[in-house]
């Protein structure tokens, strides 16, 4: 009982640290995870970590959240998954609340409005650059082009919910997989 609690606490604290230093998601956090989970604690091997990462990308939600839950689960079952997950979100959530609370006080100032007008341009550039990469790596055949354009039109032009599009795409993929076989 006591050792179980200790093990959960170690999971929580380890992922608390990971959450605090996790800037820029995706592959950029692999070195951080590897240092903590493989080198420091020896909980998993480098290969397992890469496997988890690959599986985490085939699940809904953020890759970091999925990886944390998978690692925690392998060590201590569902409770371990919960400890790791709570650890990884604690500091990001607390920081965001602090930033939002202070930002709200200054939101109405003209200087803040100017800065955010520039920030929005920077975000637009970041999203455009990310999109170019995303389309290059993920849209590779005719079906891909059709799905990508269809998703854009349904949401951007007709203002429909992205949920419907995701469901339709999943069904299309399943049917296409069937037909291929």
């Amino acid at each position: 009982m006591k050792s179980k609690l200790k093990s959960l606490a170690t999971l929580y604290v380890t992922f608390l640290k990971i959450g605090a230093f996790m800037f820029g998601g995706g592959y950029s956090m692999l070195p951080l995870l590897s240092r903590e989970l493989v080198v420091r604690h020896g909980w998993i091997t480098e290969e397992t970590l890469l496997d988890y990462f690959a599986i985490a990308q085939c699940m809904p939600g953020a890759i970091a959240i999925n990886t944390a839950t998978l690692v925690g689960n392998q060590r201590d079952g569902v409770l371990g998954g919960a400890a790791a997950l709570l650890g990884v979100i604690t500091i990001p959530m607390a920081l965001i609340v602090a930033v939002a609370a202070s930002l709200m006080q200054f939101w109405h100032l003209p200087l803040v409005a100017s800065a955010f007008a520039g920030i929005r341009v920077a975000v637009a550039a970041l999203i455009t650059a990310a999109l170019i990469n995303l389309i290059r790596t993920n849209v590779k055949n005719v079906l891909g082009i059709v799905l990508c354009v269809f998703a854009f039109i349904v949401v951007a032009v007709f203002g429909q919910s992205p949920i419907l599009v995701v469901l339709a795409a999943a069904v299309t993929g399943l049917v296409a997989g069937r037909v291929k076989r």
């Binding site: 995303l134 993920n138 891909g144 399943l174 997989g177």
Partner: peptide, 16 residues
């Protein structure tokens, strides 16, 4: 096969 279709779709959604 579901993810084969989801990846390009997500790119379109992000574009929107």
């Amino acid at each position: 096969s579901a993810f084969g279709a989801l990846r390009p779709t997500v790119a379109g959604l992000i574009a929107a």
